[in-house]
Nucleic acid binder design. Sequence first.
DNA 1: GTCCAGGGCCGTT
DNA 2: AACGGCCATGGA
Length: 235
Amino acid sequence: MKITPIALYDILLKEFGNLNWWPKDKKYHEKNSSDPRFEVIIGTILTQNTAWSNVEKAINNLKEKNMLDIKKISRSDMVILPNLIKPSGYFNQKAERLKNLAMYIYNNYNGNLDLFFNRNPQEIRDELLSQNGIGPETADSILLYAGNLPIFVVDAYTKRICQRIPFKVDIKYDEIQDFFQSELSKLYKANKLTKVYNELHAQIVILGKTYCKKKPNCIECPILKNCNFGIQLSK
DNA sequence: GTCCAGGGCCGTT
DNA sequence: AACGGCCATGGA
């Protein structure tokens, strides 16, 4: 049975409901009057090729030291910071990346994320991509989940699912992103796209973690009947 | 013990 | 353009 990105979204929305990503600690930010968008930005770097459970440990360490702050990260000691984020893995690289980005935003936008995000998304994206350690997925996650901008995030799960279904699209980041964005904007109005991209990427991650793993669990997968990979497997 | 996770960079073909 | 090695922890 043929499936489109729109149909995929329908199925996953029924299966998982609204997930309201990105995961963040609202209570913490209310209590400390800190900016939850910066927690998202930190999370996008810490979760690079890393299980989220490990990222949570790192973020908790930052909270305990009151370091979940753009100014403090931008001035952090490069012995202390890697140590705090150690559970997230690649901690030396990630500490550099975090500090560089925090310094960039702090120096050029006075740490003001409203100023940073209130521009043409393409311009912000190019700027993010020019930073060391920020590739397309991290940049787009920042745009979508911190900036609330209508940019679809492609990750390893998205690529895997595109191949397994399969969608008729070249397996490259930009091609897949263009494919999802052009398909979904056929049905949804421009002012709904941020919400749709937010939910669909979140649902794809859950689908990937739960069913469409490297070693997949197709039998219980909600898109079994719409996926060539699962159909072949169940024969 | 082995495999894997919500990538990205760099050097080599 | 494409590919391999590298970065590293913690849970399954």
